[in-house]
Design a protein around this nucleic acid. Structure first.
Lengths: 193, 193
DNA sequence: ATTTTTTCTTGATATAGATCAAGAGAAATA
DNA sequence: TATTTCTCTTGATCTATATCAAGAAAAAAT
């Protein structure tokens, strides 16, 4: 059950056996069925979630009801509203499951205890945040400088399986374009080949 | 000279006097004159910089020569290419000074030594990255969901002094719009009042 | 003080992508 | 298997923003 988590952590730091066993005690396993939600706008984000299985998305809803996907989280990724989790302020994000999911949840309290008992985890989370920041900055620059087509190509390039696992209109939302535009743009790409 | 740095660090963690003195030894003071650069695209990012005075920008240049500003860094902020600094890969960013600057530079080696000697700094950088990530995610969502005018208003709201300190065409680049559009949009806003 | 460079504005026109509308497949649910 | 819901496509039209061009104002350099 915790294999993927341990594996994920071992990519950045090393834990001895005692630490590994201790680590497990801080997480709460949770299953989420497709369409169920982990966080609703207006609630405080109580958990950081590690994804063992499935896909989730975090998104905001604008005044006109339009959804804007901030992130997807696949197996081996983490998801949560960092801001709300950190500050205890209500979240502006929604997080829900695109497939049946298996998660490992970490509460604020559990996180604090974990960092106290296993100080090495401080480093793990630092490196995790660093990678997350690098990816987010890259996406931001891309969103400011590339055309819709370029952004789509980059996405598929970075994550070739994503079109099979995520509905197209959600990819459009993630890229900041309309489903119609993405549909037309895909047609053009395929016709050019 | 290190007052602003110490103050910045104390917002997140506490250091005793010995630690404070030791901390200073890891940084290299550096002055940068307006228009001089700290990092050029293609070079490896050797430093993370803490800004004591002045403003810097990091930006990418596209195939057509267009500049896209990823970030500004004011007094009390940190700047650098996290990716290149972390991996040793050549950077895709340029960083230069918009005003005469005073910086405190941290090399990779100094960072490692610092984390070894003052493990609390691991937590400091984690929290720093967390805040940075929150801000970047917010900007990303805003860039995907808001109009040019909304983005400009949000920027000025978040940082009211920025129009006085940064040329307008650079604000446009930061927002991902053209200088002409920003000029017209500002005119409209002022006419409506 | 003059020249050069940078920055900002304004107009005319073009265009990428949005919006509105409708229908066709697919997939989930009953 | 029927039926409801979700997903994708295609067409017609609209609009926010880009592009091109030129000049004015401001700042920096000589």
């Amino acid at each position: 059950m915790y294999e993927i988590l341990i594996e994920n952590i071992f990519k950045k730091i090393v834990l001895n056996n005692d630490e590994q066993q201790l680590l497990k005690t801080f997480f709460i396993p949770k299953k989420l069925r497709k369409k169920q939600c982990l966080l609703q706008e207006g609630d405080v984000s109580k958990y950081l979630a590690f994804v063992e299985k499935g896909i989730l998305r975090s998104y905001t809803v604008d005044e006109k009801g339009g959804e804007h996907i901030a992130e997807f989280a696949f197996e081996g990724w983490w998801i949560g509203d960092q801001f709300s989790f950190l500050t205890g302020e209500p979240s502006t994000y929604n997080i829900d499951a695109l497939e049946d999911c298996e998660l490992l949840l970490l509460t604020k309290q559990a996180e604090e205890q974990m960092l106290e008992k296993i100080p090495k985890m401080e480093r793990f989370f630092r490196l995790l945040l660093q990678n997350h920041l690098i990816a987010t900055q890259g996406r931001l620059v891309s969103s400011l400088s590339n055309s819709a087509e370029e952004k789509y190509k980059q996405l598929v390039n970075a994550c070739p399986t994503i079109p099979q696992r995520v509905p197209q209109h959600m990819l459009a939302s993630f890229l900041g374009i309309t489903p119609e535009t993405l549909s037309r743009l895909r047609k053009q790409i395929s016709q050019r080949k």
